[in-house]
Design a protein around this nucleic acid. Structure first.
Ligand SMILES: [Mn+2]
Ligand SMILES: [Mn+2]
Ligand SMILES: [Zn+2]
Ligand SMILES: [Zn+2]
Lengths: 136, 136
DNA sequence: ATAATCTTTGCAATCGAGTTGCACTAAAAG
DNA sequence: CTTTTAGTGCAACTCGATTGCAAAGATTAT
């Protein structure tokens, strides 16, 4: 597991106080975080600073965003070596009971055969249902 | 192809002026429509009426919604026989160039092997890239 | 080291998609 | 026809996202 500093160095994002603490928070969570989640966790850091940090992280592929339909965009740290291109595609699971959203890095995503002449660039794949904790 | 009246009858949704015109509009489009798209197309119908119509349609499985990451939820008429359960899952394609979003009814969606004890209920699968028109 | 320049941060204001309360109208039931 | 229920239009509001701006911090040039 890489440290915040290593990740930022690799992704060529300058290290600052806010960036370090936001990235550390994301690394410590198992579920993808919304802006509000992060804001609540980091009580003394301003929302817009976190917001801009997330934008910077996303542009530089430190994190990726997930639209899970909850109304708030969620963010998760990219896997080591991820370049946010089609080969790094993976599903996300949104639990309709506990609201957890996380990356299913281990679930194989098959090659998607698009119609003639379509070009795949990215994807937002969200599978919804009950997580193991809630499916009882 | 079913008429608006037939669809509403099958789905047990009472037919009204607003509902007919909204459904007709959706049927006439090849791409999924946002609330604003519909509002613009139906100049004399109120936004909140369209909004509530869409909610009613979705609850009764006349249409399904798509979160394509554009910031606006899109809506598309369900295929004949669709019941909005896992077996009716299909991908959606969002063209990052022309902003069209549509249902890929013809692209096979493989069985998704979820982790132990997870239960699949629905999904929001959006593949992004260039459509055949824009990929030139 | 100091000054000039660029970047990041915090705060407040704003935007806009989505949603709701309420009164009015239309349709269905009695 | 009268009562009840459902649908509509309008205005107001919510809330996540985004932006303008000035202060603070970091970097580069002199
Ligand atoms: Mn992910
Ligand atoms: Mn669809
Ligand atoms: Zn759960
Ligand atoms: Zn296109």
């Amino acid at each position: 597991m890489q440290t915040e500093e290593e990740i930022l160095k690799i992704k060529k994002v300058k290290n600052t106080a806010v960036r370090t603490v936001v990235l550390r928070h994301l690394l410590n969570q198992e579920k993808a975080q919304s802006l509000k989640d992060i804001e609540n966790a980091l009580a003394y850091t301003d929302r817009s600073s976190i917001f801009r940090t997330l934008k910077t992280f996303e542009e530089n592929k430190v994190i990726h965003s997930i639209e899970d339909g909850s109304g708030m965009t969620k963010y998760a740290v990219c896997a080591e070596g991820c370049n946010c291109d089609p080969k790094d595609l993976h599903y996300h699971f949104y639990c309709t009971n506990c609201d957890k959203t996380f990356c299913l890095f281990d679930v194989l995503i098959p090659k998607i055969q698009l119609p003639e002449n379509f070009k795949l660039q990215q994807a937002n794949m969200v599978v919804k249902g009950l997580c193991n904790n809630c499916n009882k």
